[in-house]
């Protein structure tokens, strides 16, 4: 039987030092909820490096390919149009004219793909129920989430109080 402890702080530096202390005792901090990015917290609590960049690259590549394939079909294969006398029979010779749209479509796909992936992964898509333990973490408070065995609960709460937590809540896991 384990419980989830939510330790609330009102200052990001106190939180950061507190997290360092807790981690140095060998306790795993599951998550930190904060109204703004706290510099250095990911290294302290051991958040894995984001793989969003890899997704972004794949989305960008998809966008670029779609744009090029699409324009080749529209402008070269299906209905070649004479625009200002530009070569309309060859993709390669007409490439400079296609670059701006390719660029825009790449950015479009990357941006939307990243935003959707990010929200899906965090379960924050529109309409999803908010998961943060305390609405005050969207204003000016910081919350540290720790899963702990019931037997070690009292010890942990004492430690958290010592690091400057202003409020401690618990929930059955």
């Amino acid at each position: 039987m384990s419980t989830v402890i939510y330790a609330m702080y009102d200052d990001d530096h106190v939180l950061l030092n507190g997290a360092k202390k807790v981690v140095s005792k060998g306790i795993h901090v599951t998550d930190v909820f904060s109204p703004f990015p706290v510099h250095g917290i990911d290294d302290v609590i051991g958040v894995r490096k984001t793989r969003l960049a890899i997704c972004a690259f794949i989305y960008g590549l998809t966008g670029m390919s779609l744009a090029l394939i699409g324009m080749r079909y529209f402008m070269i294969v299906d209905w070649p149009m004479n625009i200002g006398g530009k070569p309309n029979f060859s993709m390669l010779q007409n490439l400079p004219a296609f670059i701006p749209i390719t660029f825009e479509f790449t950015v479009f796909c990357t941006a939307h793909g990243m935003a959707l992936t990010y929200m899906l992964r965090n379960k924050t898509l529109p309409g999803m129920k908010a998961k943060n333990p305390d609405p005050r973490t969207t204003d000016d408070k910081f919350v540290m989430e720790i899963h702990v065995e019931e037997s070690k609960e009292a010890e942990l709460i004492a430690l958290l109080k010592e690091t400057g937590a202003i409020e401690i809540n618990k929930k059955a896991a």
């Binding site: 200002g84 006398g85 530009k86 400079p96 004219a97 670059i99 701006p100």
Partner: peptide, 12 residues
């Protein structure tokens, strides 16, 4: 570089 090249290439 490309903005300069493309506009000139396109306007011809």
């Amino acid at each position: 570089w490309f903005a300069q090249f493309m506009l000139i290439w396109y306007a011809d």
